[in-house]
Structure formats: C-alpha cells, structure tokens
C-alpha cells in the first residue's frame, strides 16, 4: 500500500502538505515505468528555479530515462520554494526512496486543499487499471 499521508495525480506525481509547504514527488509506479526496474536508467532531470509560479497541471520539469524524456506536472498551484538538488546528480534516489528522500520540489501552495486528486486507495485502483 502506498502512503496515505498524501494525494496522487493521474500523471503519477504525489503531493504532501507539511505545514505551509507542499512537497511534490513522483510515485514508485512512475519510476518503474521510466526505468524498467533499473535505477541507473534514469539519467537526467531539469527542475525549475525557486520563485517560479506554477499553475496546477503545468509542466515543472523533465526527466530522461535511457529511452524516453517525460514531463513532470505540478499537481497543485503554487510558488517553487526549493528543489531537491541531491537528486539532480543521483536520480537513483527516486528508485530507492520515491516517498521520502526522492522528493523533487517544495512549493508554497496557493491552497492546502487537494481537491481532485486521489487518495492512496484510489491511486491503487488507478494504477491497477493501467496494468495489462
């Protein structure tokens, strides 16, 4: 079961509210799809500058695995406060700990309401529907 302390987007990002900050990352399913289970397959990422204002659903970054470049989408609106610089040179952290050390950005959310996103159980069903 995936963590229940956060919400999930259909584009496989998660968002967790921590005080006045929203922490955003990508799920284990996204990592698996990108890397085919091989953590060294994640090779590059581009992340936004602090201060950038993101709309919900806007592309905030890009990630390259050995065989595909994919967009990263903001599940909610807000201003970028911090990026996780540690992952830029060590994308394997996303494979090892997508829920903790593998966070990608922290934002100051426009609202702490996470309407329209899925909880863990809903995301579980959503992911199951994506499998063959």
């Amino acid at each position: 079961m995936r963590p229940n302390d956060r919400k999930y987007a259909q584009s496989h990002e998660w968002v967790k509210i921590d005080g006045d900050v929203a922490i955003i990352g990508i799920t284990d399913f996204a990592v698996q799809e990108l890397s085919n289970g091989n953590e060294s397959d994640l090779v590059y990422c581009d992340l936004p500058d602090a201060g950038r204002v993101l709309a919900a659903g806007e592309t905030f970054g890009e990630i390259e695995s050995v065989k595909a470049v994919s967009d990263l989408y903001a599940p909610i609106a807000g201003e970028v406060l911090e990026i996780n610089a540690a992952i830029e040179d060590h994308l394997e952290i996303l494979s090892k700990d997508p829920w903790g050390a593998g966070w990608i950005i922290k934002i100051k959310p426009d609202s702490k309401k996470l309407d329209g996103l899925m909880d863990a159980a809903e995301y579980e069903k959503f992911v199951a529907s994506k499998k063959h």
């Binding site: 592309t59 065989k67 595909a68 470049v69 994919s70 967009d71």
Partner: peptide
C-alpha cells in the same frame, strides 16, 4: 537509434 518523448 531510437528515443521517445512523452508529454501531455
């Protein structure tokens, strides 16, 4: 040689 872009 091959590559993919996945977007939207």
């Amino acid at each position: 040689g091959s590559a993919q872009r996945r977007s939207r």
